[in-house]
Amino acid sequence: MVPEAEFRSYYGQPVIKSPVWHEPHMPAYLYLGGLSGAAAVMGVMAGLSGRDRLALTSRVTAALGATAGAAFLVAELGRPERFLNMLRVFKPTSPMSMGSWILAVHSGLTAVAAAPVLLATRPASRIAASLPAAVTASLPAAVTASLPAAVTASLPAAVTAVLPAAGDAASLASGVTGPLMATYTAVLLADTAVPAWHEAHRELPFLFAGSALAAAGAAGMLATPRAQAGPARAVAVLGAALETAAGAVLESRLGLVGEPYHQGRAGRLLRAARVLTAGGGLLAAVAGRGRVLTALSGLALTAGSLVTRFGILEAGRASAADPKYTVVPQRRRLEGEGRAPARAPARMWP
């Protein structure tokens, strides 16, 4: 337990402003960006090792994650119609500028990578097989059979010939943008005056990388036949382990500034996330045995990754709202450097 810190403030008001980002937009974007980034890397590895079915799932997951994430990001803006202003400048001092470029390139690449596997180059039966059973069941068989054929017929032969090669190249490139996509959001949060985020700039990237791996592994497990989902299960297990370890280091290292991570609503969310992630990870290790285990594990990991992001946002809000977290570490820093008197004069003004 951290001893109660003595400090002064202006009527207990916060010194800094709380993040204005809304729920669920911001945490959903963090989750989807991570999901897409890690899935893109899985897509590359699956392709290189000849696992077509897992490559298909991963590429589609990466494309859908990036697209949906971008939609949440635009909806979060105060002026959504001006979202293209993000690409007016290329600004290395702004993680959001770098992130916008990463997202723009990554979403483009993942879309191109997913296009051929969804459209022209595969027989309809394989497309249908790739969809979750619930989706397939809800569509008339005639539709699932005829849609891809119709699309293929409407494309010039030249395009259908080029698409697979372009898709493979784009998938390879998304193996570079993916890891950036999954981790830049940690820098985005850390590069603020919010003490709980700023001081966590070492652990947050690893926490987010683990969360992204767990999310993408879970998606791979849920949407790939069990016999071919082995690597996805391994990714999920490693991701859950990384997320759990990074979270533990974060909470033990930060001391006073880390309080918001285990108190109040943020604490409850993050405890729930830890149980879901660790439980899902353990289940994933044995999930090859059965359908129910796989579903339980995949859903727990997905929920864990999502709840982690909500918890991190909430911890940042709590950290900004209490002046203690801003004033006390700064005061200690000043006193440690001998730049300020340790004690104020007894009578402060006449």
Partner: peptide, 16 residues
């Protein structure tokens, strides 16, 4: 973040 990004790639590579 670069360290974390490389770890992510490493974790996927090991898994496959």
């Amino acid at each position: 973040a670069a360290g974390a990004a490389l770890s992510l790639v490493g974790a996927v590579a090991v898994s496959f």
